[in-house]
């Protein structure tokens, strides 16, 4: 993907840039808000990553200016302003995702993947009502789950968890992404909420079949391979 990164801290910027390049993205890195706005107005990016407290023009103003100019490029905030209120403010202004510093690179990677994909998917496609992967099919209209033709009884949250994983088939879903998407929890619980639900889900979709569907990625999250 082609990415724009606004980050005024040189060391963090370099780290993110290196990481993104390793992932095969093409990234333009700017260090102040005015340059970010000029770049985002002048070129097409798949995702724009904005810090909020930046010189010349803060990230939120950059976003507002972009949206005012009817530029719909997905924007991910990557900022030290991690309060509930800051988050809501960022999302209400038209941001697509919000990641508070300090952050795990795996988290940023996963969220960028989701954003770029979502953006591409929105380009005129009707949303699927049937999700499939690893022999599992999830009927979103009938709220039914089956594996190899065999019905599996999932409760509401297990279904939502399965849906989140299948939607991002092949891409890692981090714990925090799942917490936000499945339970609408924007904080990090000190207990293993996600792990416990994943293990319950596994007991239903893996145990009877004796294989692995949901793969755990160390230090990152979970993924269903396509």
């Amino acid at each position: 993907m082609r990415l724009l990164l606004l980050e005024d801290d040189v060391e963090i910027g370099q780290w993110v840039l290196d990481g993104l390049n390793r992932e095969g993205h093409v990234t333009d890195w700017v260090k102040d808000g005015r340059d970010a706005l000029a770049a985002a107005m002048g070129q097409t990016y798949d995702v724009v990553i904005l810090d909020r407290m930046t010189p010349e023009l803060d990230g939120l103003s950059v976003l507002k200016a972009l949206r005012a100019a009817r530029i719909a490029t997905p924007v991910l905030f990557l900022t030290a302003m991690g309060d509930v209120e800051d988050r809501v403010e960022g999302l209400e202004a038209g941001g697509d995702d919000y990641l508070a510093k300090p952050f795990a690179f795996s988290e940023l990677k996963a969220r960028l993947g989701a954003l770029g994909r979502r953006h591409a998917a929105q380009a005129g496609k009707v949303e699927d009502t049937l999700l499939t992967g690893a022999g599992i099919s999830l009927d979103l209209l009938k709220r039914k789950c089956s594996r190899n033709g065999e019905d599996i009884d999932l409760n509401a949250k297990e279904f939502a968890l399965m849906e989140a994983l299948l939607r991002s088939k092949g891409r890692i879903q981090t714990r925090t992404m799942l917490l936000e998407r499945v339970w609408d929890m924007n904080f990090d619980p000190t207990t293993s909420v996600v792990e416990t639900h994943i293990s319950r889900l596994r007991a239903k979709i893996e145990k009877p079949f004796g294989d692995t569907v949901i793969r755990t990625v160390r230090g990152a999250g979970y993924v269903i391979e396509g």
Binding site: K101, P102, A104
Partner: peptide, 9 residues
């Protein structure tokens, strides 16, 4: 947060 972010990185 900046140094902690670097440290974590």
């Amino acid at each position: 947060k900046t140094p902690v972010t670097r440290l974590r990185a």
